[in-house]
Design a protein around this nucleic acid. Structure first.
Lengths: 242, 242
DNA sequence: CTGACCCTCGCAGGAAATGGGGAGGGAACT
DNA sequence: AGTTCCCTCCCCATTTCCTGCGAGGGTCAG
């Protein structure tokens, strides 16, 4: 195991990433990275859409299968912990006190996962949440030194990896819909902060009847089934920012 | 104007950032960075789902005031554009075709903002969305070369800046929210895709009465005033992903 | 084993949102 | 000059949602 700076320059690694143009390339890149860094595993995974997700990495297939089968997503302290954080985290810093968490870790190790990990949370548009993790088996001191030293490079790496994975995602919608009018945006914005129609109408200084026209119009433009749906769509598309 | 690598090492800059321990330090850091890079402005600001926001940077106060007064947040192609993207963006790549956008840009320039900009979107926990922007006045070629060359350093810088800003945020409720139960998440998820209560109940194979309990419970946990608000909050906090 | 929390089900009245109609004035783009 | 879109206002009937009440069984951690 060696620091990135001493094994391969971050420049060369990132350039290798740039040339990836298929998901297979990302997988190959993970494996190569693993070797280059001399660590056990590199894993990237994201959850975004309803069932829309993607993952690649060097974890044994048996572990991945077990993870899904057991529903470990709801137990995994790495996921739970990173979800609340902005900065990368060393697994040792997480909360492993619960019974379920310890059982989970034991199961992971039994399936060939190393006891040390360093996970970088990454968030993208539309609520995308990804984790870029490196994993190894060694003592705490070594791992601490390695991650401290390589932290910045790893962040950059995770960032570019995610960028690439997003680009390669097929389900990219171009920019179809009719844009909302300013008043429609106003209406949805106030609705999104919890106002009811009377309050929104008051805030916008218009009659509630007029307001309703906006809401309906926005609903139709967004292809939404009801107001809640319209607000949700507007939020996801970044049409309204609250 | 010089590339980061040629003016000051990214290491030194980041270390300067590390030592910041108050918002004033971030402000001072922005100003220093401006000088170091030889550019007109450095700006950082964020908006989060909880309505709280923070900003600092070197834009003239008159421009910031005007921005707020005019409600430019809804017009600004930088904000609108970055919200949809993961990677940093050069202002020139954005869509300035609308009249409002051009008027906005003209107004900005009139207030001392440079015509060139490079903005990095950053997303944090709980739907935090921040923008780190550098701004200058020069021709397209120079700017293109500068941003291309400094891109990686700027990303890292933006990332650490945001990390610092998050740490310094006073209103950081560490673990304010009671987490939602799985069923509550399920309920909100289906509501967010437009189902009404009957449909959600059906999808979850539970009675509508039971479903109602979840929705109410989720509403209370999220501090939401109604279902739409609850869904909006859940989306912004990344509790549900559709 | 005792809370604490989750999942499940029920009733009923009142409040709010929705759907579908119509109508006039103004700004903008062709 | 005409079309298209936006803003504004109004009525009515129906559907849906919110509020407040109550109840039993399950799981998990201290």
């Amino acid at each position: 195991m060696g620091y990135i700076s001493s094994v391969a320059s971050i420049e060369r690694i990132l350039n290798g990433l740039e040339s990836a143009d298929a998901h297979d390339d990302l997988q190959a890149f993970s494996e190569r990275l693993c070797t280059d860094l001399g660590i056990s595993h590199v894993v990237y995974h994201w959850v975004s859409g309803s069932g829309d997700q993607y993952g690649c990495g060097t974890y044994p297939a048996s572990w991945v299968a077990r993870y899904v089968e057991k529903g470990y997503l709801r137990v995994d302290p790495v996921v739970q912990g990173c979800y609340q954080r902005f900065h990368p985290v060393n697994w040792k810093q997480l909360d492993w006190s619960s019974r379920a968490a310890r059982a989970f870790l034991a199961d992971a190790v039994a399936h060939g996962v190393g006891n040390q990990g360093f996970s970088i949370p990454i968030r993208g548009p539309n609520g995308q949440f990804a984790l870029f993790t490196i994993n190894h088996s060694c003592d705490d001191n070594h791992w601490e030194m390695f991650t401290t030293e390589s932290r910045r490079d790893l962040i950059l790496l995770a960032h570019f990896f995610n960028d690439k994975a997003l680009q390669l995602q097929p389900g990219r919608k171009p920019r179809d819909a009719t844009p909302l009018s300013p008043r429609e945006v106003d209406a949805l914005t106030f609705l999104a902060v919890g106002y009811n129609r009377a309050q929104v109408a008051d805030a916008l200084s218009i009659s509630e009847h007029t307001l309703r026209v906006y809401i309906e119009s926005a609903r139709h433009k967004l292809g939404a089934m009801n107001t809640t749906h319209a607000v949700a769509k507007a939020l996801q598309r970044g049409i309204i920012v609250v």
